[in-house]
Design a protein around this nucleic acid. Structure first.
Lengths: 338, 338
DNA sequence: CTGTTAGCGCATTCAA
DNA sequence: TTGAATGCGCTAACAG
């Protein structure tokens, strides 16, 4: 049923090679034969078998993108951008949802070498730095998220510590002094929480504010419901905070929701800041102040870096790309714009 | 650099076939040789070249999933589920974000025959039924979303008309009489808006209520900002509605946000209902009443249907799967649960 | 139980 | 400018 190069060649009365030349827009083909071949292709409805081509060319035109949670708006937006950018380069994207599970993340690394994709963009969460470092490295790989020490792949990310500083500084500038931090994950390797906590601590110290451990709330994951739980925990304290820095937007939205239920006024009683700038935060009640990494740039650079390796264009040591971030002040800390 | 079957065979002192047998867990291999081969594989770090295997077996173990907007939470959640379910069947998923653009959707259909994926799950938006009907059909394809007449592929979806009825009936049961509909798309092929509008009209008529065309608000797309605009339009009317049925949740969340800004009380002044049951609606202020299609089932069935075709297990006429839906009553129409 | 032999469909030498 | 032959790495008959 499927029609191959050979079929086209037979019909057009030329050799396989000629058809191949036409298909690949090889210049040295006479106008006449080209026309004849094209007619045959059209007539037969020929489509190249990409699997065969991939085997031969050792390129698949596919990139793997492995992220922890596709249903987190941040990643959904990132995936969309990566898919778009990759498409612009003629690449398609194979998406992997790891749930931050070490086992699945390990598979991502191990699947390398099967030559199914030309490159990998990987946002790890559950794997230890040690395991990450064990990456064989036969296929170009770009890391997203926090930078892992001793790791030797290209990396694209925002400066998590600086983002935390921006958020906390903003709260301090508002005159808040009891600032909570939500999203600590002591048991996770994912250094995101460490970095943000570090930024939080650093900023408080620099401002001469106390660091009250009771204001540092751990959460099992970064979903809205964990924000709800964190808000409960914070309001149960003898002296609750007057501001809450959440390590991502879903947590902040959960906090916002719970504060509303408890009748706490935001930002009057408690100001709230998140990180990621997902769309929901621009329409929530109140709208959410957040620190926005430039997602589009992350996607663009990540794809750019892998493809430079894939093409062999670049072959040096690991590269480090730090993207910009911006504080978006909205209602949850006092301003009113969207 | 890459090590092939042959290398392993040489090292183990056996034939290529034997190695292949070991790799594929073919039973008839003596324990001894198996061990020797495994050792060689381990030693060399052999990994099968999937491209070659795919060419040979005419299977790629990949499914394409084409949807309009990955950054719409409904689709993000759906993609996650599809990826999960596919993974359970040993399949990986290639994601395509079409933006509902007819050109890109056409490419999805045309890419069929390149044998890069074993099956396709497709949620079209911009293509006309005519074009959809022109699908060659060489690769198994399952359609998501509204059912397209004259179309001859398997289809999985919820009953859009019934979902609209559920939403509107609920509003009527609350005593509302001026019920608006947001999300009409007269210029789109996508029949989703038609179906929901049909359900809306039918339900109003059945209840003996007037259908006021000014209460039917068209939107260019289904994003939050379009909900904001729709709310503005509705409140500018001489006699505004006392309830708003939005064709999806993002629209409803935009409406909710704008009503809040305008000081309209929800649900007291205006009740709001959406469709899709995305997570945001469970944490918004107020929480959003919505009609929830069973996404998990949609994903499960969609993957199931394609794979049955892929395996050749099923080879009959198009199958139609209609998944359940449930009304989730929350604060935006008066109840308080999450 | 294991080795030999053919292709899968394509791109690519090398000749002509 | 085009054709014939080769092999990418693997699985599948078919022998042995």
């Amino acid at each position: 049923m499927p029609v191959s190069l050979k079929d086209v060649a037979t019909l057009a009365g030329v050799s396989i090679k000629t058809v191949s030349n036409v298909v690949n827009d090889y210049p040295y083909v006479s106008t006449l034969t080209r026309a004849r071949v094209k007619a045959a292709i059209e007539h037969l409805g020929y489509l190249p078998n990409l699997t065969a081509r991939n085997l031969r060319t050792r390129r698949t035109g596919m990139l793997a993108l492995a992220i922890p949670q596709l249903d987190n708006a941040y990643f959904a937006e990132l995936v969309r951008d990566v898919v778009d950018v990759a498409r612009g380069h003629g690449y398609t994207v194979l998406v992997d949802n790891t749930d931050g599970d070490p086992g699945r993340e390990r598979e991502v690394l191990e699947s390398v070498g099967t030559r199914l994709v030309d490159g990998i963009i990987f946002s790890p969460l559950g794997l230890s730095p040690r395991e990450l470092a064990g990456y064989p490295g036969s296929t170009p790989l770009v890391m997203l998220g926090e930078r892992v020490s001793r790791w030797s792949a290209d990396h694209v990310g925002a400066d998590s510590v600086a983002m935390a500083c921006a958020a906390v500084s903003h709260l301090i500038s508002l005159g808040r002094t009891r600032i909570a931090a939500v999203g600590h994950q002591p048991r996770r390797w994912a250094s995101t929480s460490r970095q943000r906590l570090a930024g939080y601590r650093k900023t408080l110290r620099a401002a001469g504010l106390d660091i009250d451990p009771r204001l540092i709330v751990p959460t099992p994951m970064y979903f809205r419901r964990h924000g709800v739980e964190a808000a409960d925990a914070l309001l149960a304290l003898d002296s609750p905070p007057d501001a809450i820095f959440c390590f991502n937007d879903p947590l902040a939205l959960g906090v916002l929701r719970r504060l509303h239920e408890l009748g706490v006024r935001v930002p009057d009683d408690i100001a709230v800041v998140g990180v990621d700038d997902i769309e929901d935060g621009r329409y929530s009640v109140p709208t959410l102040t957040t620190v926005a990494p430039d997602k589009r740039v992350i996607a663009t650079r990540a794809v750019g870096l892998v493809l430079e390796r894939v093409s062999g264009e670049v072959d040096g040591p690991p590269r480090e790309v730090v993207v910009e971030h911006h504080l978006r002040i909205r209602e949850s800390t006092g301003a009113g714009s969207r």
